[in-house]
Amino acid sequence: MADPRGILVLAEQVEGKLAGVSLELLGLGRRLAEVAGEPLLAALSGSEDQAQELVAAGAERVYLLDHPGLEQYLLETALPALEQLAREVQPRALLLGHTSTGRDLAPRLAVRLGVGLATDVASVTFDPDGGALVASKPVFGGLAISEQSGVGFPQLATIRPKSQEPAEARPDRTGEVVRFRPDLGQAPPRSRVVERVRERARARRLEDAEIVVSGGRGIGGPEGFRVLEALAEALGGVVGASRVAVDAGWVSSELQVGLTGKITSPKLYLAVGISGAMQHMAGCSNARTIVAINTDPEAPIFEKAHLGIVGDYRKVVPALVQACRELRQG
């Protein structure tokens, strides 16, 4: 049996477009591959063109998973396909995004391959002594960081989206595209995808939202909330409000965040024009990152926030919308 070699990255595509996480994985993969001195590989169930995109982003070889059962993601078919590829390629490391796909696939793949797994990893390094990956992942909701390595090869990890610099596309890069035909057997599938529904983030419940843009007294009126809605849209989040804004009739009470309103636990909470009173903070203190935008530098919110801008939201937020849009596209 040959030694494990190569950093293999599982790229994802949705409806013809490569998912952003794929480029982030390649960015990370390239850095690891350089340190390990091994090739950067990618796997994809998609089109030739997408495979070429992966090459341009740095993949030296792209395995195009070729099977009619793989046209749409389904765990039942993707799992054996990826397992077979891993056994065939024998990479040192296999990286997936910590996406709905990655969450589904990685643990079962680890069991099949007899290896360990680090999930939702924010940073990875390569340990030349032993050739393992050392993954840093937050535990206890972020109270501690665990540095882990899995046993065996491939070293398996799911990488937190947006935590890595995406690889840059360089059209002058070259690489192989290899078709890989897994044997998925004849047994009828026990599962099927009925449909995929795209939902606007706004339809999500406040309590489950990952990003909340919240407005308070400083917004000044219902029109101000349009600006916040634009920001929420740009970030893929939802709008919330403090009790003052709800009382004033600027927004409906459905949006109230606080002790007597909704309790949220997003990864990002933007408190715009909110003073930071305890009753409101009870509704967002679990947020991983709290950003405050307020004209009053003495406002209590600045003691609770991680980042802050002292300024007029009417000027700051539109600029922020633009900046975020650009970042998201890039």
Partner: peptide, 20 residues
């Protein structure tokens, strides 16, 4: 088990708000 934890540590609590 298949996961070897090398180290567990608590990140520094940044209590100050970072003003832009």
């Amino acid at each position: 088990s298949r996961i070897r934890q090398r180290r567990l540590y608590q990140p520094q609590e940044r209590s100050e708000c970072e003003l832009v």
